[in-house]
Design a protein around this nucleic acid. Structure first.
Length: 470
RNA sequence: CGGGAAGUAGCGCAGCUUGGUUAGCGCGCAGCGUUCGGGACGCUGAGGCCGGGGGUUCAAAUCCCCCCUUCCCGACCA
């Protein structure tokens, strides 16, 4: 089974992905290059991802809010590194209301600046802290080489922005989001294992003092960054004068974090679990967990299918029933397989005569004849097993294709097929240049003792994971 | 912007080297019929400024020149 690979137009990709999931629109008389249309099947997956992330974000006491799409250009320039990092990829609006604007506005590439504009008004006292805000929004980054889902010029995401009274608190919160929101969702819902660690200086977010990342391995051994959490220190607070009165009567700048996860996760899901027969959705994220395919509406099969659907719904399974008996059975089977529905139940008069239905698992391709009375139980077992099996497969792939090496040359060789781990002291400026020259990048840095690396940690204590990436 | 490749029906392609009836094929789409427990089949049909402009020629999808667009590799990146 080949691992699907997403390209900018999804053309040398199995055709069904653009029919079923999404399409990158690139026509000269059509939408802007690199933007994408997400079809209902793909969007339903995003809605599930949103819900799972949102629940966990709220569990960290973060509230949702909304800030403007347009940002005055001058806001971006207030933080030196930030403007330098984003300038080339900004979409700038120069006209509005039929007239040239006195000051151009940019379409937000991320919202640190506008949000800090408001934070500086909202925060007065240490009693206002921590201030924990999240926004669900779209952002625009004018990408030179867009790639369906992975790097589209417009994408959907959530961006969290927080203010804290001290650096340690901010740091702890950035890591809490990394673990309790991102890693938990990606592992437990998307069934994709990740490596978490710190980005190298070169890969750090513009304006941050530290960038934390989650790196996953796709079916072809390349790395994909699944999400990010930044410690911003006091950089934006200084630029926007976001200060507060401390408990002892002094004044200080707030310490901040920002963190985000995007529609890229849909792409990750496709590339981590998909195969030649289409998508394979982990049950936890599947908009439809079980489809009941009515083979033929004869001898009470229709009623049996309805009854089973009711039973499954009552058991909390997201179930859909396919009664399109005028469409051939094979066609319908393939359609649900392409969409990655984890479990399919075939209900028809032939099996029903024996009191049975057929339960098919998408992840393993297994087909079992099960008594109608035991079908609901078989479905819930299958959903649990499929969720675990997909995570185990992805985990096994990552283990099998990760190699520990001790030289840069060996790292490049290992990166041809997967991840390479090597002592971080080899990845100094010259080492990173060498790797980058071979299309290999430092994905993350971790401590050899498993603890979180701190900025002041010497390279001797760190291990670098390097790989080719999307 | 540097290096490669490609633009012909909604999608995927052939035809071009060696100009020559009305530009083909597969999928998809529409109609009718037979099918229907793994992408069914037959018949009929609709659908083309052959990327654009200029040139050569009796004649250009095909040869020449210019332009445009897109894709892949690199710089950027959730």
């Amino acid at each position: 089974m080949a691992a699907p690979v997403l390209t900018s137009q999804a053309d040398d990709f199995p055709k069904w992905y653009q029919d079923v999931i999404a399409k990158a629109e690139l026509a000269e008389n059509g939408p802007v290059r690199g933007t994408m249309v997400i079809r209902p099947t793909g969007y339903a997956i995003w809605e599930r991802v949103q819900r799972e992330l949102d629940d966990r974000i709220k569990a960290c006491d973060v509230d949702n809010a909304y800030f403007p799409l347009f940002i005055p250009q001058s806001f971006l320039t207030k933080e030196a590194e930030h403007v330098e990092g984003f300038s080339p990829e900004l979409a700038v609006v120069t006209h509005g209301g039929g007239e040239q604007l006195a000051e151009p506005v940019v379409v937000r590439p991320t919202s640190e600046t506008v949000i800090n504009h408001f934070f500086s008004k909202w925060v007065q006292s240490y009693r206002d802290l921590p201030l924990l805000i999240n926004q669900w929004a779209n952002v625009v980054r004018w990408e030179l080489r867009p790639r369906l889902f992975l790097r589209s010029s417009e994408f959907l995401w959530q961006e969290g922005h927080t203010c804290h009274a001290d650096g340690a608190d901010a740091r702890a919160f950035a890591l809490r989001i990394l673990d309790e929101v991102y890693e938990a969702t990606i592992r437990d819902v998307l069934a994709i294992p990740v490596l978490t660690g710190r980005k190298s200086e070169r890969e750090r977010f513009p304006g941050a003092i530290a960038t934390w990342t989650l790196e996953a391995m796709m079916g072809d051994g390349k790395a994909l960054q699944m999400g990010t959490s930044h410690e911003l220190g006091q950089n934006f607070a200084r630029a926007f004068d976001t200060t507060f009165s401390t408990a002892d009567g002094g004044t200080d700048y707030v310490w901040q974090t920002s963190w985000g996860a995007t529609t890229r996760l849909i792409g990750a899901l496709i590339m981590a679990h998909g195969d030649d027969a289409g998508l394979r959705l982990p049950p936890a994220v599947a908009p439809v967990q079980c489809v009941i395919v009515l083979v033929r509406d004869e001898d009470g099969a229709g009623a049996a299918a309805d009854a089973l659907a009711g039973e499954l719904r009552a058991a909390g399974v997201r179930v859909r029933i396919d009664t399109r008996v005028d469409v051939s059975f094979g066609r319908r089977s393939v359609e649900w397989e392409l969409k990655g529905i984890p479990v399919r139940i075939e209900v028809g008069p032939r099996d029903l005569k024996e009191g049975n239905v057929t339960v098919v698992r998408r992840d393993a391709g297994t087909k079992d004849s099960v008594a109608v009375t035991a079908a609901a139980a078989a479905v819930s077992t299958s959903l649990t097993d499929a969720q675990a099996a997909l995570l185990a497969q992805a985990g096994e792939r990552m283990r099998a294709r990760t190699t520990s090496v001790s030289t840069l040359d060996e790292a490049v060789e290992a990166a041809a097929t997967g991840f390479a781990e090597l002592p971080a002291k080899l990845t100094d400026d010259a080492g990173e240049d060498f790797l980058n020259g071979k299309s290999v990048t430092i994905r993350c840095l971790r401590r050899t003792d498993g603890e979180r690396p701190r900025p002041e940690d010497p390279a001797e204590d760190l291990v670098a994971t390097v790989a080719r990436s999307y």
